[in-house]
């Protein structure tokens, strides 16, 4: 029981930092920019950011399992391309969805096979598949002009309205809730955490770490595919280089939300709050008339600040559990070098 309260205290501290920053930022922008708090404008920019919210869920799984997935942005772009292509061929909308998700799953499988079976560094593999996916989209758009489908039901995948919100926001909400439950409540989620905390202890307790990592990469790829379908349906046109820097934003969001890059700590909702923080910051700066080109600099700075705060908070939280302090700090130091 005592342990439980310490644990929840830690979680509370982790989430509170980013939430407080978020609230402060919202107050700041609503004072500075008049059009910031209009419901339509909020709905608009959240709708624009749905693909990021979706890929960040998969990324959270991979990072908690101790990996990293840099390919999500490019895979999302490629899935958008493939699903729009088949829709333009006149295939029904559900086939387009399946093709898009399968594209994502194929790349997830590629990442999973190379990282878990061939044991190549996660980072090199996903950097390679990033290039492969981005190149495949260039080849695809070279061959076909992806300027739009006539199939209205494909466009309605993301464009329908329920209770004042578009269907893509609803889909993102459902995915967040479902995957948060999977991560925190299911045995698979427990195994993901165990894998990220330490391969050796997980192995000793009989967990197949490679299998849970495999699953995490598959989830990441599949969700990137789904995000691509939603983006294609929303934009109804795809060019080469689509969704290029999304992985940077997603990693920044996850890090800001306190998902530890060392693995083993984090949750979906906190990553979402991190992404919300970044997109809101972007929107607020836009409304204040700041050059949108500055946003990349802001994202980069946010990653750095996020990691530093995360480490500080974690050290602070460790002081609550004095018993494990020594071993934990040793573990932290080891992780730092191994990364």
């Amino acid at each position: 029981m005592k342990n439980q309260s310490k644990f929840s205290k830690m979680i509370a501290i982790d989430g509170v930092v980013i939430l407080a920053a978020f609230v402060l930022m919202v107050i700041f922008f609503s004072l500075k920019a008049d059009s910031f708090l209009i419901p339509d404008s909020i709905r608009y920019y959240i709708n624009e950011a749905v693909p990021i919210f979706i890929i960040i869920v998969g990324l959270t799984f991979v990072i908690i399992a101790g990996g990293i997935d840099l390919s999500i942005g490019a895979v999302l772009g490629l899935s958008a391309g493939t699903s729009l292509t088949v829709s333009m061929w006149g295939w029904p909308f559900w086939m387009a969805v399946i093709v898009g998700v399968l594209t994502g799953l194929a790349f997830g499988l590629l990442n999973a096979v190379f990282t878990t079976i061939f044991k190549i560094n996660d980072f090199i593999v996903t950097l390679g598949t990033l290039n492969i996916a981005a190149g495949a989209l260039t080849v695809l758009t070279d061959q076909i002009q992806l300027t739009g489908t006539k199939d209205t039901s494909f466009k309605r995948i993301s464009g329908m309205n329920f209770l004042g919100l578009t269907s893509s926001i609803w889909i993102a909400l459902i995915i967040v809730v479902v995957f948060e439950l999977v991560l925190l409540k299911s045995p698979f989620g427990r195994r993901i955490f165990a894998t990220g905390i330490g391969q050796v202890p997980a192995l000793i307790s009989g967990i197949n770490t490679q299998r849970s990592k495999f699953g995490a990469y598959l989830i990441s790829g599949g969700l990137a595919g789904l995000g691509g379908v939603l983006l294609a349906s929303h934009l109804n046109s795809v060019q080469s280089g689509l969704a290029g820097g999304y992985e940077l934003t997603a990693i920044a969001g996850a890090v800001l939300g306190g998902v530890s890059l060392a693995g083993g700590r984090g949750s979906v909702w906190r990553a979402i709050v991190g992404a919300l923080f970044l997109t809101t910051l972007n929107q607020g700066l836009l409304l204040m008339g700041v050059d949108p080109l500055i946003f990349q600099i802001v994202t980069g700075l946010c990653i750095l600040v996020g990691v530093v705060i995360d480490r500080a908070v974690y050290k602070f939280a460790l002081t609550f559990s004095t018993q494990t302090r020594e071993s934990n700090s040793q573990f932290l130091r080891g992780k730092r070098f191994s990364l």
């Binding site: 990293i68 980072f123 820097g245 940077l248 990693i251 920044a252 890090v255 890059l261 060392a262 050059d291 080109l293 500055i294 946003f295 990349q296 600099i297 802001v298 994202t299 980069g300 700075l301 990653i303 750095l304 990691v307 530093v308 480490r311 730092r336 990364l339």
Partner: peptide, 30 residues
């Protein structure tokens, strides 16, 4: 950033990649 603040190598340099790209875009206005 990597040694004194303890940020993992690839995260620090990934952030620097974004910052550098932003700086050159902002400076040249594309």
């Amino acid at each position: 950033l990597i040694t004194k603040l303890g940020i993992p190598d690839f995260i620090a340099t990934l952030a620097m990649l974004g910052i550098g790209q932003g700086v050159i875009l902002l400076w040249t206005q594309g």
